[in-house]
Every structure is written in C-alpha cells, then in structure tokens.
Design a protein around this nucleic acid. Structure first.
Length: 493
RNA sequence: CGGGGCGUGGCGCAGCUGGUAGCGCACCUGGUUUGGGACCAGGGGGUCGCACGUUCGAAUCGUGUCGCCCCGACCA
C-alpha cells in the first residue's frame, strides 16, 4: 500500500469526506446516477445502527412490518402539503409487463400515504389503537445533487408510523421517539445532539409539528440526524383513518411518523473522523479490535501466530467483534495505516517481545485522557497483560466511546455562540467560522428567509428548554423586534 | 437547471501539431524482507465512453450524443 495521504480536513473538508468514504471502502458511486453501493465496511455500520435502534423501538412497544415500494400516484396527491413537498423529487414507474400502466406508480419517497391507507382498514374502534409500527426500507427522492450517505437518490432508513386516539397521546409518542433518537445518538453514535422543534418553513410536508435532533459536524455545519413528526389528523382525514370513540362518535386518529437514515453514517464520519481516516465509536464499529501479529523469523512467526490465534479465539468466544490480520505480504506498518483508515477502534499488536513478556500492545484509534499520555510525537500505546486482555478490550472500548462523546461535545460547545444581538456580527460569524448561533427571532418566516438569503444559514431548530441560554434573548436579531423564540442559526447539510 | 471539470488496463494519470497505446499504484510468479506505508527480478491485463464524419490511416481533428464528478438553487 503506497496510497497517498488523505486530503486534510483543513485543506478541503468536502474532499476529505469524499476521499475517506471511498478509501475506507464504506461506499462508492454506482452506475446509476445519485445511487450508492454500500460496501461491507459501510453496511456493517448500518447493520449495527439497525440492530440497536430496532431493539429500542421494540422496547418502546413498536412492531416491524413491511409495505410495498410502489405507491399509486393518486395516493400521493391526496394530501395537499404532501404533494407539494414531494412532487418534484418523485421517481415514477409508468410501464409494467411491457404495457403502459393505467395509473403510474410512484417509488416511495416516504410511506405515509400507503401506511395510513392500510391503517384505515385495520382500525374500527378505539380499542384498535394505538398502532405502533415501524418499517426498515429503502426510499427514493430524486435530489438535484447527491453526496454519498448524506444525500443519495436511494437511501435506507426506518420510518415509524403510529396512530393514536388522542392528540395528547400522539404528541407524547412524537416526543418519546425524539428521545429515543437522542439516546441513540449519545449512547451509540457518541454524538451530542440538540433536540428542538422545526420552524414552519423547515417542517415536514404534511406535519403539524416537526421535531428534530441536530448535530454539529467538524466543519461547524449542522446536520439533522433524525426527525419526529406529529402529523395531527392531516393524513387520517385524507385516508379515512377513523374509529369509533369511547363516546360512540366517529373520530379521526392522530398520527406520528419518525425516521433516521443512512445519513447517520455520514454524520458519524463528519463528527469523529480525522486526517488519518475513519474513526468509529466502538458500539457501532463492525470490527472493534484487530490483531496484528509481528515477527521476523519462522520460529518467531509460529510462536507469535500461535499465541495471537489463542487470544483471537478467546476474544471471539466472548463476543467481541475482532479480526486477525495474518496477511504475509504486508509489513505491520502498512497494516496499521490500513486499519486506522478503516476506523477500527483499537489495534492489538503481538510480537516476540510481547510473547516473552505475556503482554500485548494496544493502540487506541484516538488518544485517551484516561490513560498515560503518549510520548511526544508518538501515538498512545498501552501495555496489557495477556491474561487481562478481554477485560482490557472491554474497558478501552468503553473509554473510546466516552472520549469520543466528550470530544464532540467540547467541540460543539466551543463553536456555539450565545448572546449575539447584532445581525452584522452574526453574519460575520456565519461567513467566517460558522457554528451554532443562538439568537432571538420574532417568529416571522420573512426574517428567517432574509437570513437564509444573505448568509445561507437557516434556523436549525427552536431548541428545547435545556439547551436554551440562561438569559433569553429579548430581541429578534434580524428585525430588532421583540423575540418570540430563541433559535439556533447555522449553515446545514 | 446555471457554472466548471472529466471520460484512455482494477485505480490514478500521460499521450492529443494524426502513423493502431505508455507510466505509477494495484494484480500474478519467485526470492529476500516484516515493532509505523519493504525491495529485487520476471509476468498478465486496455484498443482509448458511444455514434457519425474527415483521412490511405483517428485515442489524437470535426459534429453529435451519453454519462460522471465538483460548485450553486431544492432536500433526510
């Protein structure tokens, strides 16, 4: 491997991202415009996202189901806001079996219309509620411009859809799932997120209220990592999702929908990775540790491999996602670079010296505050007794997981600016370093649009109470009028 | 859709004042190496996005076409 170094983040963040995705073999462009091929290294991350989120969905009472890829065009046209929101980005099937179809079929951009059509058949009385459902699926949106993981024509996601008896119940569900996303982001993605509500202009087409989790990337831009919508009765009215209530009257159900997508993988990359390559939180790393055996002579080779294999099997039997790199045509150094590029959280080196001492060397992918500082100019290396290896891997994985969250949180905080009251100053900040600017807003879409036009920044959300500044801004930063909300302004993906 | 760039072995590129392809990496074989990107020797693999045209002759010139990437407006 004589590959050149990656473009650095400082040189060109965008080029760094693109190179990293391809070099770490996460995904690449397919022969079809805007569609990506997710390679095993990337798909493995998605599988872990799926497994863990799915568990959280089940724990909160949801069940999985599957609905068709194709949706009659007329379904999409039933809900006015929905049509308007999605019409430009639909892919439409017009032919089947060699004949033109009587009614074109749309490849789902999202499944509200199909799912609520079915819900309507399943619900008669209030006892049939709530319905708490989720599907893992692919969807298509014909985007103008695509980027691997962040915005592709086809992408993988989960979409939760629920139906409830009352508005309050629906709102509770909407917020509960937002909470699930937040926990997942923090506990698994090691990514701090801000929860909040979207303004009307950023709201989902057809929703009453849209809530979101927003994360900050290393270039200080925001990325919406998940959304949860309270759909009110907008869809139930259009799709006749009615039930007989406790008082005997016919009522429309209250719906919610919520989703996260393969975009999360893009977020993981942009939050944690460095100029050496991918950095993955251990809980979402398809390979948590890789063993690199080191030897010169044949005698050394046999004894090192024997020991390494024993440790490998031991780790594996205890459930660790571990790999052993026995390639013989590659120097250890080359392997180090490769596994670092691929984001494996820790490397376990075993050489003759280690065998003699009954130790191994563990090199964590990031520097840990919890361990002895690395020597100047060197990477951190930890000497671990062989008989304590399993515990050590477990501990170090936990420390990396926490360290990543700590680093990302510190970075976000140092790039969050509060207390700005001067619009010119905000413009200056947004055009220079960017970041999250907390400031007042009069609640008028016009002032929001003005900022977007002049700075390309948008209101990411009206943050929940715990994220707001201790002293609330009194004036709208754009107009100087009384502020209705404190909001977060930022450029976004 | 506007602006820019590009299509030549798997990848990255050179060749483009016309004479039927070359380099680096990767790959295969053998040998020496291996604690931070090894080296030597030998070897396999493309007809130059596609179409038409000019010409004795086209990767190279002309026209057209398709596709991709990057920057903007739209979006998870």
């Amino acid at each position: 491997m004589a590959d050149e170094k990656l473009t650095t983040r400082a040189q060109d963040f965008s080029a760094w991202y693109n190179e990293l995705v391809e070099r770490a073999q996460l995904a690449e462009h397919s022969p079809v415009r805007g569609c990506m091929v997710i390679r095993p290294n990337g798909y493995g991350i998605w599988e872990l996202i799926q497994q863990n989120l799915d568990k959280m969905f089940k724990e909160t009472g949801h069940e999985n189901a599957y609905f068709p890829l194709l949706i009659p065009e007329s379904f999409l046209k039933k809900e006015a806001a929905h049509v308007e929101g999605f019409a430009p980005e639909l892919a439409v099937v017009t032919h089947g079996g060699g004949k033109e179809l009587e009614e074109p079929l749309v490849i789902r951009p999202t499944s509200e219309t199909m799912i609520y059509t079915m819900f309507a058949k399943w619900v008669q009385g209030y006892r049939d509620l709530p319905i708490l459902m989720n599907q893992w699926a692919n969807v298509m949106r014909w985007e103008m411009r695509t980027r691997l993981f962040l915005r592709t024509t086809e992408f993988l996601w989960q979409e939760g859809h629920t139906a409830h008896e009352t508005e309050a119940e629906a709102e509770e569900e909407t917020l509960k799932m937002l909470g699930v996303y937040r926990s997942f982001a923090e506990d698994f993605m090691a990514t701090p997120v801000i929860t909040g509500r979207k303004t009307d202009s950023e709201r989902f087409a057809g929703a009453l209220r849209t809530y979101c989790i927003e994360a900050m990337m290393q270039d200080n831009k925001a990325l919406q990592a998940g959304t949860s919508h309270n759909l009110g009765q907008n869809f139930s009215k259009v799709f006749n999702l009615e039930f007989q209530g406790r008082d005997g009257s016919m009522q429309y159900a209250w719906n919610t929908s919520w989703g996260v997508s393969t975009r999360l993988i893009g977020s993981l990359i942009m939050v944690h990775s460095d100029d050496t390559g991918l950095v993955l939180p251990p809980r979402l790393a398809p390979t948590v540790a890789v063993i690199v055996p080191i030897y010169k002579t044949d005698e050394e080779k046999s004894i090192v491999l024997e020991t390494a294999d024993r440790l490998f099997k031991d780790l594996k039997s205890k459930g660790f996602r571990v790999k052993m790199d026995t390639r013989d045509n590659m120097s250890p150094g080359a392997k180090y670079y490769e596994w670092e590029l691929k984001g494996v959280p820790m490397r376990i080196e075993i050489g003759p010296k280690d065998v003699a001492n009954s130790t191994v060397v563990i090199a964590p992918r990031i520097t840990l505050d919890t361990r002895e500082e690395p020597k100047p100019g060197k990477k951190q290396k930890l000497f671990i007794a062989m008989d304590a290896l399993c515990d050590a891997v477990e501990d170090i994985a936990g420390e990396i997981q926490s360290q990543l969250l700590k680093n990302a949180t510190a970075r976000r905080e140092s790039n969050s600016i509060r207390g700005i009251t001067d619009y010119e100053q905000m413009k200056e900040i947004l055009s220079r370093d960017g970041g999250f600017v907390y400031a007042g807003w009069n609640g008028d879409p016009a002032s929001e649009a003005k900022v977007k036009e002049e700075t390309r920044a948008t209101i990411r959300c009206i943050p929940d109470a715990e994220f707001r500044s201790t002293t609330a801004p009194t004036k709208c930063i754009v107009t100087g009028e009384a502020a209705k909300y404190e909001v977060i302004w930022s450029k976004a993906y």
